[in-house]
Write a protein that binds this DNA or RNA. Structure first.
Length: 211
DNA sequence: AATACTCGCAACCGCTAATAC
DNA sequence: CGTATTAGCGGTTGCGAGTAT
């Protein structure tokens, strides 16, 4: 890499859209012989009228020899669901746990199958206003007091005032809506049931930074 | 049988982090 | 240290196949 080079994709004169069998074969043949150290230079060297980005995507998502094709197993789907709870839309990180599956494929499966399935089972996303009060029965280790969460869109922060002074740690157990965890940073979440662990500070005020 | 509609997937687009200079 | 470039990521789109009317 370096400066002073032309940008990656000179769109003029390059093929777009679906790959032909001949293009696939050229790409496979070139990579098998020479590898893919430089995606930008690759299409020209391989005799392809594609940009490097397109070649990379085609190879990674479709042509790699270790790609596993076909339907996802129940185990794979469960893994995706669990990892999505923990990681959010980090498709490449999720893909790293599923050998032979690509981030693009996992993203498609999530968007077309799993999200719908979960939406049927679960509930609507908690808007800030719907989260302003959490009562004792939703907390695993509090006294009989009510814990409130105040939320601010302006400061992008949630603050929690806990009236019970003796708690070092509060576990919130909230019925699962998976997407909601995406808004939190620096909280640990277990997968079943979803638990958000927040450490109390000496002032009994908790701040959760939104992503 | 023809047309409209829906769904799933492959590919593209835009952005960002990493890296070379 | 700042800038340019690339690889990689995630969101989105477009097209083809299947299904419904």
């Amino acid at each position: 890499m370096g400066r002073g080079r032309a940008p990656c994709c000179q769109k003029v004169g390059l093929n777009k859209g679906s790959w032909t069998l001949e293009e696939d074969q050229r790409l496979i043949s070139y990579i098998n012989k020479n590898g893919h150290e430089n995606w930008r230079a690759l299409p020209k060297l391989a005799g392809l009228l594609r940009c490097g980005k397109s070649c990379r995507l085609r190879w990674i998502n479709y042509l790699r020899p270790d790609i596993k094709r076909g339907n996802f197993t129940k185990e794979e789907e469960d893994t995706i669901i669990n990892l999505h709870e923990l990681l959010g839309n980090k498709w490449s990180k999720i893909a790293a746990h599923l050998p032979g599956r690509t981030d693009n494929e996992i993203k498609n499966v999530w968007n077309t199958h799993l999200k719908k399935r979960l939406n049927l089972k679960n509930f609507t996303p908690p808007s800030p206003t719907s989260m302003t009060k959490l009562h004792d029965d939703s907390l695993s280790r509090t006294s009989s007091s009510t814990t409130s969460i105040s939320l601010s869109h302006e400061t992008n922060s949630y603050s929690i005032d806990e009236e019970t002074p003796f708690l070092d740690e509060i576990d919130f157990i909230i019925e699962p809506h998976l997407d909601m965890w995406d808004i939190f940073d620096d909280v640990s979440i277990s997968t079943s049931p979803p638990v958000m662990t927040i450490t109390n500070d000496p002032n009994n005020t908790l701040d959760i930074t939104m992503k």
